[in-house]
Amino acid sequence: MTNKTNILTRWQLERKIPLGIIIAIILQTLTAIWWAAKLDSRGVMQEEWFQKNQHLAEKVFRLEERLIAIHEEINELEARLNHVK
């Protein structure tokens, strides 16, 4: 029985919390909230940029298709010239 009471007396929790720990937890919480808000605003900014510039991506795709077509025509012309010689 004395062994159990010794174990119980060693594992008592104190209700004292240092002021430094409270301030540190509050600061960490505020920092996490600020970071999450900043991350969200970055996502919104990237989404807006993508919406504004989506037409540019379409233009680049069209230009790429035209370039491929021109390249094929040049190859055909070279083949004809080589065939005529």
Rank of each mutant, 00 (worst) to 15 (best):
R80Q: 07
K85Q: 10
F61R: 13
E65F: 06
I25S: 03
E58K: 04
H55F: 09
S41V: 07
L27G: 06
N82D: 03
I21A: 12
Q46R: 12
D40S: 14
Q28M: 13
A37Q: 15
M45W: 04
G43D: 06
Q51T: 13
L13P: 03
E72M: 08
G20K: 14
I22S: 03
I33E: 01
Q54L: 12
G43K: 10
E48F: 02
E47H: 15
R62V: 04
Q54P: 04
P18A: 11
N75D: 14
L56A: 08
L30H: 01
T5G: 04
R10E: 01
N75K: 13
I74M: 08
R66F: 02
E76I: 00
Q54M: 12
L81E: 09
L19K: 08
A69I: 06
R66C: 02
R62M: 12
N82H: 07
Q51C: 07
V60G: 01
A36D: 09
T5K: 08
W35H: 05
W35E: 12
W34L: 10
N53L: 02
R66T: 03
W11Y: 11
E76M: 05
Q51G: 02
E76N: 03
V44S: 12
W35Q: 11
N82P: 00
F61E: 14
Q12D: 00
L81M: 07
T29E: 01
I7P: 00
Q51H: 04
I25Q: 03
A69E: 09
T31N: 05
V44M: 04
I21Y: 08
Q46G: 09
A37P: 03
F50G: 04
W49E: 08
R10Y: 01
L81K: 13
E47D: 09
M45P: 06
I25K: 03
T31Q: 03
R80F: 03
A57V: 15
E72P: 00
A57E: 09
I26N: 03
L77K: 09
T29Y: 06
L39M: 12
A36I: 13
K16E: 11
N82C: 01
K4D: 15
D40Q: 15
E47A: 15
H71G: 15
N3D: 14
I23H: 02
K4Q: 14
Q46N: 10
Q51Y: 07
K16F: 09
I70V: 10
L67F: 11
R42V: 06
R80H: 07
N6R: 14
R62Y: 04
N53K: 04
I7V: 06
N75P: 00
E73V: 03
Q46I: 08
T29M: 09
A32G: 05
N3Q: 15
K38V: 05
L30C: 02
R62C: 04
K16Y: 02
I70E: 08
H83M: 06
P18T: 08
I21P: 00
F61K: 15
R80M: 06
A36N: 10
R80I: 10
G43R: 14
E58Q: 10
T29R: 02
E48K: 14
